[in-house]
């Protein structure tokens, strides 16, 4: 069981949290302006890197707040957590790049 540092509550065990997938994928302001390919990309395509990955997490059994985390998908280590709207201090790996 991992320990996760909620930016609002502090360090808590993993079982209090839920992961919401990759972070920093903004919902397009006008989805209707996207063609099918671009919309499919937004909906379904994720970076899935081996390495540092920015993720959305929610402290579901705690404060209920969503925040972001950088986790190493290889070591399963949480490198940092930060509030929604902020940027990570670690460069994240992007398998698509």
């Amino acid at each position: 069981m991992l320990l996760i540092d909620c930016p609002f509550c502090g360090t808590r065990p993993e079982t209090e949290f839920r992961c919401g997938g990759e972070a920093h994928i903004a919902r397009p302001a006008d989805p209707s302006a996207l063609d099918d390919g671009a919309w499919a990309e937004h909906l379904f395509v994720r970076s899935n890197p081996r390495g540092l990955h920015a993720e959305r997490w929610v402290h579901a059994h705690g404060c209920g707040r969503w925040f972001n985390a950088v986790r190493d998908t290889f070591t399963d280590r949480f490198v940092e957590t930060y509030k929604a709207g902020e940027q990570p201090s670690h460069p994240i790996d992007d398998a698509r790049a």
Binding site: A26, R56, V58, G64, R65, W66, A84, G85
Partner: peptide
Amino acid sequence: MNHMEDYLQTEWP
């Protein structure tokens, strides 16, 4: 509830 909270907090704060 989670679905609503997610959008409220992260897309339309």
